[in-house]
């Protein structure tokens, strides 16, 4: 069987911001993920975790370099810094879960979940939202699985963060995704919602054999839910192994000064400040992403 995710010699350099040097986000990075694995990607902010994930689904392309390529389920996504033809069709089998959920706020939860069929339904049926009863039932089953079928008719914008993220996961289920890429899926959630979301991802991985690649900022979630942890630093892999092999010394090496933010501590007194810092950073980051993408 081909690897679920195969990344070879991927480089990514972001265009220089005003008055700054061009920033190298990924540095000749290669990584293989076998089918059915659940792999955590950890590393300090700016280490390239999210960038790597976005390359896998072809939302971004790498630098123009002939050796670079990315494939999912044995089918190429990008080669030499260019998306391959038919990437949209491949994407329909790759679920993507975002930190900011990225649901369409004015659509119902069911509508958002059914959007997962857009890549597979015929164009006109999709655009006119003419979903079959079978598709609607599948969407309801997916919503029941993530535990929010009773709010299927509500507008997505009225949901809590945890519910929105679960709806986003239901969308990947309806896609029939063989691979789920989750980009900081719990960074914007409270601890209880975060635990539920990670449980659901782990359950889908366990029961359906769906390959999950998840970026996480907090190391304890990575070691608790994933049998394999890959650590990035400055766009390169610095650790690839089991949670047991991830020693405190290694973590200090990976995170440097950011270690306190990544590690939970037993005393709530020390836990509070990093959380607050994490939360206050998010709006700024969302804004930055917004302006860059436009």
């Amino acid at each position: 069987m081909p690897p679920a995710i195969q990344i070879a010699h991927l480089d990514k350099t972001f265009a220089p911001q005003r008055g700054k040097q061009p920033r190298k986000a990924l540095n000749d990075l290669s990584l293989n993920v076998a089918p059915g694995e659940m792999v955590a990607l950890i590393g300090p902010s700016g280490s390239g975790k999210s960038t790597l994930l976005r390359h896998v689904s072809g939302l971004v392309t790498g630098d123009r370099c002939q050796r670079a390529w990315v494939s999912v389920g044995g089918q190429p996504i990008q080669q030499g810094g260019r998306l391959v033809r038919g990437v949209r069709e491949r994407r329909s089998r790759i679920g993507f879960v975002f930190q900011q959920f990225n649901l369409v706020g004015r659509l119902s939860v069911l509508g958002n979940v059914l959007a997962g069929r857009l890549g597979q339904a015929s164009t006109w049926r999709g655009l006119l939202s003419l979903w079959t009863d079978q598709e609607k039932r599948a969407a309801m089953v997916a919503l029941a699985r993530v535990g929010i079928s009773e709010i299927a008719g509500q507008r997505a914008s009225t949901l809590s963060g945890g519910q929105q993220q679960r709806a986003a996961i239901a969308r990947t289920l309806v896609q029939g995704a063989q691979v789920i890429l989750a980009d900081e899926p719990i960074a914007s959630l409270d601890p209880e919602s975060a635990r539920r979301v990670m449980e659901i991802l782990a359950q889908i991985n366990r029961e359906d054999g769906v390959t999950v690649l998840v970026t996480l900022h907090q190391v304890d979630y990575a070691t608790r839910y994933c049998r394999r942890v890959v650590a990035l630093r400055e766009g390169a892999i610095v650790f690839d192994g089991t949670p047991e092999e991830l020693t405190p010394a290694l973590l200090r090496d990976i995170y440097g000064a950011e270690l306190d933010f990544a590690l939970p501590t037993s005393t709530p007194v020390r836990e509070a400040p990093p959380r607050a810092a994490e939360r206050s950073r998010q709006p700024a980051e969302a804004f930055r992403l917004g302006t860059v993408n436009v």
């Binding site: 689904s57 939302l59 949209r88 069709e89 491949r90 994407r91 329909s92 089998r93 790759i94 679920g95 993507f96 975002f98 900011q100 959920f101 990225n102 649901l103 369409v104 706020g105 659509l107 959007a115 997962g116 069929r117 857009l118 890549g119 597979q120 164009t123 999709g126 655009l127 986003a168 969308r171 896609q175 969302a286 992403l289 917004g290 993408n293 436009v294």
Partner: peptide, 21 residues
């Protein structure tokens, strides 16, 4: 907001699907 548009793109929707949804 580009977020939802990217969310729809990630499902493999066509360019028209991204606009409509």
């Amino acid at each position: 907001d580009p977020g939802p548009v990217e969310g729809i793109r990630s499902t493999g929707a066509s360019a028209l699907g991204e606009i409509v949804y």
